[in-house]
Design a protein around this nucleic acid. Structure first.
Lengths: 193, 193
DNA sequence: CTAGCATGTAAGTAATTACTTGCATGAAAG
DNA sequence: CTTTCATGCAAGTAATTACTTACATGCTAG
């Protein structure tokens, strides 16, 4: 196995264990075991335990952040655009689910994570506000507080994500896509003049 | 100080520390210190560390769960009812914020918490579905998947709560009430025939 | 006044944890 | 073939952690 492979496996194991049990409860011994690596190898690669999380945070800092997804593929049909965006937002969150969970657990010990995570809705909010403004000028949505509308739309998607990621099908076993379709339908009608 | 006072202070301290740092990182020594109590007192009251969390979970199990809040004070005006409910839902979540955070951190170690927490949206979902059905029969909302609509409405409120509880004003410094008002406005128009 | 009960104090223990050091091994690269 | 480098293995260490035991103290109810 190459060097890169080893470090990667350690990071993956840490990502999983820390997201499940939290930083303190995820012992270096357990991480090493799950990675199929000797415990000392961890310290040779990352210096100390915090080093693993530093590496994880760095890895996600360079994540493409769902870039311009909403500016691309815009049809200027409200429902189409919102659905397209909603699905992408949801899938993006699902793809970094472990990282988000770590963010929720270790905000105290690793404040950098919180900033990274807060960046996501912040970025999306701005994109959405932009989109809403343009749509308003085109006369396709009613007069409304664009920021509040954007935040609300983000909140639905995030809420659906959290429900699925954390509670699975306990609350509902509806397919996620159908849920998103309904919330988008409500939103697009709610925003139409 | 009375016995009840001591146990209560220990529970409060544990609630705070565990919600901040997680179960493993919240040491009995630190909990005792914050509670202004000797460490042994913890074990005399709760047997072992898990005992404290068992007590916390029990305490919240008997929590009134926002009961019938939506069935009470119903005006059968969609926007009025939704706003009233949204505010109550939001404030309820804020009032048990620490418990919710513990639920997110310690789902693995304390599966009971997850069930407790999942009960909240589950209960609310049923109430909302009921309300939507009645409103539909009164011809006040359009034909739509009531479950998906209920889940979406819960998701917005929860999303707003999470944003505020976890990220504070990083994403937006709009007052929460204004945010809720906008999302309710969108929803009620989105559901109206 | 006294008996009981909750708590504080002191001291200790077994287990675990993050981390270190020294040495062996095996594969790849020059 | 030999050097280098990543890794495994064995052993150990200092600190911390949950938890125990024994005894002292003070408040309160009868």
């Amino acid at each position: 196995m190459s060097t890169k492979g080893t470090a990667e496996r350690i990071i993956d194991a840490a990502l999983q264990l820390v997201s499940e049990k939290g930083y303190t409860a995820a012992t270096t011994k357990a991480i090493a075991e799950l990675a199929g690596v000797n415990e000392v190898t961890i310290f040779r690669h990352f210096g100390n335990k915090r080093g693993i999380l530093k590496a994880i945070i760095e890895q996600f800092s360079y994540f493409p952040l769902l870039q311009q997804e909403i500016n691309k593929n815009v049809t200027w049909d409200l429902e189409t655009d919102l659905l397209n965006f909603s699905v992408k937002h949801f899938n993006f969150l699902m793809s970094i689910k472990d990282f988000v969970m770590i963010g929720f657990k270790e905000a105290m010990q690793f404040p950098e994570i919180n900033e990274e995570i807060a960046n996501i809705p912040l970025h999306i909010k701005n994109e959405l506000i932009h989109y809403f403004q343009e749509m308003y000028e085109r006369g396709k949505i009613r007069e409304i507080d664009f920021e509040a509308a954007a935040l609300s739309f983000i909140a639905v998607n995030f809420g659906h994500f959290m429900s699925r990621a954390r509670l699975g099908t306990i609350v509902s076993n509806m397919p996620a896509e159908e849920l998103l379709k309904t919330s988008v339908s409500i939103f697009s009608r709610g925003l139409t003049p």
